[in-house]
């Protein structure tokens, strides 16, 4: 690990001001990914600004019936919160399907959303990786890519976004609140992460110095019957090969509304809007679900080792939504 200075921020503006002055500085939340990457020499900050005292660690109900989650809330507290468990079980489930209790106790909500890809090559500084070292090449495209993306890839990067929480938040239309050098803004979760394109070094749209302060969940009645299904190589404590976050509202046999997001398939949580559009206004049958899932995955471009993710994602979508529909009957 390279030497660095350590400072504590006591409010968001102070944190942003500190960071904005230092091009190599980084915010430190729980540190469970940042410290990991610093040990690997992937992350090389010269200043850490501890923001745990600067952002809210509270979950509160909003006047419109939504919920605001402070960015400093631990993953464990988020999953245990009754408001979340009752109104957005998909969020609690997604969190609990990620990492271990030890990590969730320390990791923050903001940090969870900004954790970096677990692509093998990104984490090994002796190999080429455009995300880590722009222009060096992508080792994964002709290398081991079983875990990597099938949707929205570019010739420069096929990494996946690893956060389970982000997938669930994408499904329920969460908004990320930030404070940055240019003021504060709200960013829809689905627009926080970006596709790699020719600049895979940028995981997301945040500017240097922009700090996530909270995540807002809108009121969404059908989210009370939502579900997260994660498929992975171990029964626990492993990243997703494919995951599905889903919620559905069926009335009189017709799909009134549906939300589907996929994890493990792209550089961002993949909101399956095409599938959702196809499903609305018709019955929630296995056949229609299958066709909707296939339409969503029609443009998937598998790599040498991960073509299996296409049928896996299709089947996972169908099963997850069908289970919700059957539970509702």
């Amino acid at each position: 690990m390279r030497p660095f200075r350590y400072e504590r921020a006591t409010d968001p503006d102070g944190a942003v001001a500190l960071l904005s002055r230092s091009p190599q500085a980084a915010f430190l939340g729980g540190g469970t990914n940042l410290v990991d990457l610093m040990k690997l020499d992937v992350a090389r900050p010269d200043l850490l600004i501890d923001i745990r005292g600067a952002v809210s660690g509270v979950i509160e109900e909003l006047p419109d019936g939504g919920v605001r989650i402070g960015a400093g809330v631990s993953n464990s507290d988020l999953a245990a919160e009754p408001l979340i468990r009752e109104r957005y079980p998909v969020v609690a489930q997604a969190v609990l399907n990620g990492a271990s209790t030890q990590l969730r106790n320390v990791a923050t909500v903001g940090g969870n959303l900004l954790q970096r890809t677990r692509c093998l090559y990104f984490q090994d500084i002796t190999t080429a990786c455009n995300k880590r070292q722009p222009g060096s090449g992508c080792s994964a495209i002709d290398g081991h890519n079983r875990d990597l993306a099938i949707l929205g890839t570019s010739p420069d990067c096929i990494a996946t976004q690893p956060s389970d929480l982000a997938v669930a938040l994408a499904a329920v239309d969460a908004t990320v609140q930030t404070v940055g050098p240019d003021g504060s803004r709200g960013i829809p979760l689905t627009e926080l992460h970006r596709l790699p394109g020719s600049e895979p070094q940028h995981d997301n749209v945040l500017a240097h110095g922009e700090l996530i302060t909270a995540v807002d969940l809108p009121p969404l009645a059908m989210a009370a019957r939502s579900r997260y299904r994660k498929i992975r190589d171990r029964a626990s404590y492993a990243f997703a090969l494919v995951s599905v976050a889903a919620a559905i509202d069926v009335a009189d046999g017709q799909v009134r509304d549906v939300r589907i997001a996929l994890g493990g398939v792209a550089h961002k949580p993949w909101r399956a809007r095409r599938a959702e559009d196809l499903l609305r206004g018709g019955p929630a049958t296995e056949d229609r679900l299958r066709r909707a899932a296939e339409a969503e995955l029609a443009e998937a471009q598998p790599q040498s080792d991960n073509a299996f993710k296409i049928p896996l994602a299709r089947n996972a979508i169908v099963r997850t939504v069908l289970d919700l529909v059957e539970a509702e009957r």
């Binding site: 677990r118 093998l120 090559y121 984490q123 090994d124 190999t127 290398g143 081991h144 875990d147 190589d233 171990r234 029964a235 626990s236 404590y237 492993a238 990243f239």
Partner: peptide, 15 residues
């Protein structure tokens, strides 16, 4: 290239 315990899986308790 998968030289860690997150990507070289050994069975966990749940397995």
């Amino acid at each position: 290239i998968n030289h860690d315990l997150a990507t070289y899986h050994v069975s966990s308790n749940a397995d």
